[in-house]
Nucleic acid binder design. Structure first.
Lengths: 198, 198
DNA sequence: ACCTGAACACCGTTCAAGT
DNA sequence: ACCTGAACACCGTTCAAGT
């Protein structure tokens, strides 16, 4: 790992430091001053690269979406001839990302970022991700795996299904009567298959 | 509205003040010191009633769940002979609550509360709410409206579906190609009907 | 162009003291 | 029992100054 800031790429070093603090101390422990310290600069140095804390959070979220997109892409392109498998593997990848990057996932989706539309690269990657979901849904519809509704609406439905269960689980809102018997992965898959069998 | 703190029920006055600040300034604007000021007491007075900020947040979330439960209950008991209508009206009530109490909803579900299991009244009302969902799901299953799977699993599926779409919409993650044509209410209903027709 | 250090307003939390 | 005010460590942000 070549970390050569000091006189190098401080902007990315700050993002990386943020991700690490997030993983180690959670959303509540993320402060600009700690990020600066971890990157080895003074507490006001970040302001040369980000206008405020929200912008750093936007950059971290954008980074998270880039990674999520890459993992979804990888899962999907491994099964290009089998739409149903693409859907299932994509869902697995989504759940896996959420569980492996818990606090990054939280910061991406939990309303900490307040004016997301102001950050164009965030908007870009998040709508690119949405389009990826639409593509898989469309392929599934063409293969008769998902019902024939408008693909974007169906994409919201599928993504919402997965995202909702994952979110409720992370919030501790899924009853232990369910969690004792099934993993989150299983619960999500069972639910998705309900959308498929129709 | 009889507000008679000063020498009265400060604990509830603080919760109420918190809800108001949440509605007015959002999650980011909620501070203990502002809550105290709005309730007309010194900044350290809250510590006589809540051990820390997390506890106040837990109390506000609990209050939110109580209200959500009441509204779900009302929607459901209006149609006690028609399970499908109970489901649909319950879903509407959930979406309505989220949109009318945006920041309370966020605080209830967005990971701001960190050790939710430590707050027994929060756990009580949230599991009571889950049981309500299970009941409606079970009634639907008995009426052949929802497929015959374990009711608690099915409840997670249904709740997750609704919660996920609402969450994505509040996060600005639902594509404008969808939102231009449909209200959130409609999107959720279309998705739920997909679970019903199977 | 990029970074530092002092400064300011704000925050959560503690604690001795007041009633 | 409940509340106040001073104090402490921490935070986001600004700005004059350094290289």
């Amino acid at each position: 790992m070549p970390k050569k800031y000091h006189h190098g790429d401080l902007k990315n070093a700050l993002i990386q430091a943020g991700v690490e603090i997030l993983a180690k101390e959670g959303v509540g422990g993320l402060s600009l001053r700690k990020v600066a310290q971890r990157a080895g600069v003074s507490h006001s140095a970040p302001y040369a690269h980000f206008p405020d804390k929200q912008s750093l959070i936007a950059a971290i979220s954008t980074e998270g979406f880039n990674q999520l997109y890459a993992e979804l892409e990888a899962a999907i392109s491994s099964h290009s001839k089998n739409p149903k498998k693409q859907l299932i593997e994509g869902v697995q990848a989504y759940v896996h990302f959420a569980m492996e990057n818990l606090d990054t996932f939280k910061i991406m989706f939990s309303g900490v970022l307040e004016k997301e539309k102001d950050y164009s690269s965030f908007v870009d990657i998040s709508s690119k991700t949405f389009k990826l979901v639409v593509e898989v849904v469309q392929a599934c519809q063409n293969a008769g795996v998902l019902p024939a509704a408008p693909a974007d609406l169906m994409a919201v439905s599928v993504w919402g299904q997965v995202h909702g269960i994952v979110s409720l689980a992370l919030e501790g809102q899924v009853s232990h009567t369910v969690l004792d018997k099934h993993s989150i992965q299983d619960i999500v898959l069972v639910s998705i298959e309900q959308l498929i069998n129709s």
